[in-house]
Design a protein around this nucleic acid. Structure first.
Lengths: 200, 200
DNA sequence: CCTACCGATCGGTAGG
DNA sequence: CCTACCGATCGGTAGG
């Protein structure tokens, strides 16, 4: 369980399989076959099937958090342009993480509930905290009147589920580039929170 | 396999289990236990586990189609008020079907890919046709300038995935009523397609 | 709807 | 990383 490249190979193969068949629809032998070893040999690299799922989900959770950190720390325009720009940046960052590794992203979005209780709870609260960052931007926008009179929590959920929906249709070889999608989704999201008269 | 009420009981119990653990994470014995019979006895009512999934998914597909039929046939205002009202009505109808039976809706949204190839393809094309009805409303709005300059296909996907996201958080006992959600989601969706200057 | 049973496969361990 | 193996469980059938 030391050699990192082999471990990554396994996680990558597992991501694809978990995405296609789900966590419980994928057997340890399926994963082993995908990396051309015997089923039992997989345990030379991982300690359990749960362990593989955890690695994938945990890594993706960290990526989303790191991307939001960059947005919140690095954008000097946030204070100038306010919640509109902040929300658009968060959306673009989220889409970028999703499209950077759709296989793993899909596992994160759809299979995290297959984690054992303790780990599942940990991911659940990290997801809540992450969603709160979107909610915060919307809160401010509503307060200062830059956004319409919307429910911030419900709106954050609406937007985030729309973004996460990407994992069920996006393909790197599809007609739309990650950039195009990120821009279109940022526009749609920011327009959804607009006040009736349009942006000021 | 005649008695309808028992069959419905089984499908309802299966919906809950499929929602919680996924199709492949649920055993035939799990379903049987939920309706208090022996595992093998389930086969007196259903012909296979796939069969149960199919019944749930097919029924939900029909409900979505029927709801959209009502919107398209029954609303005399559609011609007067145009694509804005049409889109809002489609959104409201979709949310209503989702909230009417979240357990089954979640199975429809998340487990239909566990169907065997033929049935999966059939559902896939019905989903495409359904999404096309949203796309059509958006197409018209863009053409006549009621909506902004957006990609109708991408926008329809954005909206529909946001709506379907409901299945991962909605609870009948939660703080938000189906009506409140339907109205908020219709507003958010219609604002997302708005032209820059706001509605005319 | 039950008991009894089927072959196949499951996640994982032992011991090299 | 392999062979050999473990007990448990899988979806489903036979026969009543």
């Amino acid at each position: 369980m030391v050699e990192t490249t082999r471990r990554r190979e396994i996680e990558s193969a597992a991501s694809t399989l978990f995405r296609e068949r789900g966590y419980s629809g994928t057997s340890v032998r399926d994963i082993a076959r995908a990396v051309d070893i015997q089923g039992a040999s997989l345990y030379a690299h991982v300690s359990s099937k749960q362990d593989v799922l955890w690695s994938i989900v945990e890594r993706m959770a960290s990526r989303f958090e790191a991307a939001a950190d960059v947005v919140e720390a690095g954008d000097p325009g946030a204070l100038v342009f306010g919640p509109r720009v902040q929300l658009m940046s968060l959306v673009r960052a989220h889409v970028r993480v999703l499209t950077d590794d759709v296989e793993a992203a899909r596992v994160f979005v759809r299979e995290w509930q297959a984690l054992e209780a303790g780990r599942r709870d940990s991911i659940a609260s990290r997801r809540d905290a992450y969603e709160a960052r979107f909610r915060a931007a919307i809160d401010i926008g509503v307060e200062i009147g830059a956004f319409g009179d919307i429910d911030p929590a419900l709106t954050a959920t609406y937007i985030l589920t729309a973004l996460n929906g990407l994992v069920s249709w996006y393909s790197p070889t599809g007609r739309l580039s990650p950039r195009t999608i990120a821009e279109a989704y940022a526009d749609l999201s920011v327009r959804a929170v607009q006040p009736p008269g349009g942006p000021s």
